[in-house]
C-alpha cells in the first residue's frame, strides 16, 4: 500500500526533530502521536505536518510548546491507589532490609508520582535513607515537579487517593496551602534528584532497588519499550523491583523472561536472579 502523505510527513517531522533537537520520537506509538500532532497542527495554524516541520526547524521557540503535544503531561497523586498499597504492603518489607535505597521514577511528568513515593517512604520510615531519581524529557514538567506546587482544588482527590493507598498519616502533613496552591514540603524534596533523561536515547546512571515507570511505556512502540525495559533491567540490583502502569504489561517485551511476577495484579515485577 502506498504511504499516505500524513504518514510520510510524520516520519519526516520526527526525523527533523531528532536531527535538530536530539529528542527522539521515532519509536513512539503512532496512533496517539498522530492524534496529538493533528491537534498541534491547528494550535500552530498549520494545515499540514510539513508546515509544522518548517516552523519547528526554523523557529526554536516553537519546540517547547510542541513538546507539550509530543509528550503527555497527565498525572495524579497516588494514581491507582492499589499500586501504592501493594508497594507498601509487599515491597517495602524487602526494601527495609537495605541500609540505603535508590529508587527511580522514570517519566515523572509534573511530579505527582514522585511525591507519592516520597510520602509513602516517609510514612514507612525509609525516606531518610532513600535517594529518589525523578527523570523526564520534558524540562518544563521537570521544573514543575521540582517546585512541587499544585492547584488546591486537586487536594480532595489527592487526599482520597492517599487514604486508599493505605496512607497512615494525614496528607496535610506534607504540604502547605496558600493562595489557591498547595506546596509540597522541602523535606520530601531533599531526598529527590530531578533530572533530564530520555528512555529513548540515554543510558543507565545508577544501580536501583526500585524502578517505577508508569504510563510512559504505552507511548512507545515495542522496540522502544524493549529499550526502556532493557535499561530498567540493567539498572536494577539483584532482585530489584519494577512497577509499571495498571494497563501496561511486560508480556510482549523481549525482556519478559528476566522478570518474575511479584504482584501481577498491580503490575509489580521482580528482576530474576539469573546467572
Amino acid at each position: 500500500m502506498p504511504h499516505r502523505n500524513f504518514d510520510i510527513e510524520l516520519q519526516l517531522l520526527v526525523d527533523a526533530i531528532y536531527l535538530k533537537y536530539h529528542y527522539d520520537f521515532r519509536g513512539y506509538a503512532q496512533a496517539s502521536l498522530k492524534r496529538r500532532l493533528t491537534t498541534a497542527m491547528s494550535r500552530f495554524d498549520c494545515s499540514t505536518l510539513s508546515q509544522l516541520q518548517d516552523r519547528v526547524l526554523h523557529d526554536p521557540s516553537v519546540f517547547q510548546p510542541l513538546l507539550d503535544y509530543l509528550t503527555v503531561q497527565v498525572s495524579d497523586l497516588f494514581r491507582d491507589p492499589a499500586y501504592f498499597l501493594a508497594l507498601r504492603e509487599k515491597v517495602v518489607p524487602l526494601l527495609r532490609t537495605y541500609p540505603s535505597l535508590r529508587l527511580w521514577v522514570a517519566g515523572c511528568s509534573t511530579g505527582e508520582e514522585v511525591y507519592s513515593l516520597a510520602i509513602l517512604l516517609r510514612e514507612e520510615g525509609l525516606l531518610d535513607r532513600s535517594l529518589i531519581y525523578a527523570t523526564d524529557i520534558n524540562t518544563q514538567a521537570l521544573q514543575m515537579a521540582q517546585a512541587g506546587v499544585y492547584d488546591i482544588d486537586r487536594l480532595p482527590g489527592f487526599t482520597e487517593n492517599h487514604r486508599r493507598a493505605g496512607g497512615r498519616t494525614s496528607l496535610s502533613d506534607y504540604y502547605s496551602a496558600a493562595y489557591g496552591k498547595a506546596v509540597f514540603d522541602k523535606s520530601l524534596r531533599k531526598q529527590i534528584v530531578f533530572s533530564d533523561h530520555s528512555l529513548a536515547t540515554d543510558s543507565v546512571f545508577a544501580e536501583m532497588h526500585l524502578v517505577s515507570c508508569r504510563n510512559v511505556l504505552i507511548y512507545f512502540n515495542r522496540d522502544l519499550q524493549d529499550r526502556a525495559v532493557g535499561l530498567f533491567r540493567e539498572a536494577l540490583c539483584r532482585k530489584g523491583f519494577l512497577g509499571i502502569g495498571a494497563k501496561e504489561s511486560l508480556r510482549f517485551s523481549s525482556h519478559a523472561e528476566a522478570f518474575a511476577d511479584y504482584a501481577l495484579a498491580d503490575r509489580i515485577y521482580q528482576k530474576k536472579d539469573l546467572p
Binding site: 506509538a29 496512533a31 496529538r36 502502569g245 495498571a246 494497563k247
Partner: peptide
C-alpha cells in the same frame, strides 16, 4: 477499553492505550 484509558488501534493492527486528556 479499560476505564480511564483511551483505546486506540495502531498499525499491525495492534491495540494501544493512552492516558491523554
Amino acid at each position: 477499553a479499560p476505564p480511564d484509558y483511551h483505546l486506540l488501534v495502531d498499525a499491525g493492527p495492534q491495540l494501544a492505550l493512552s492516558v491523554d486528556e
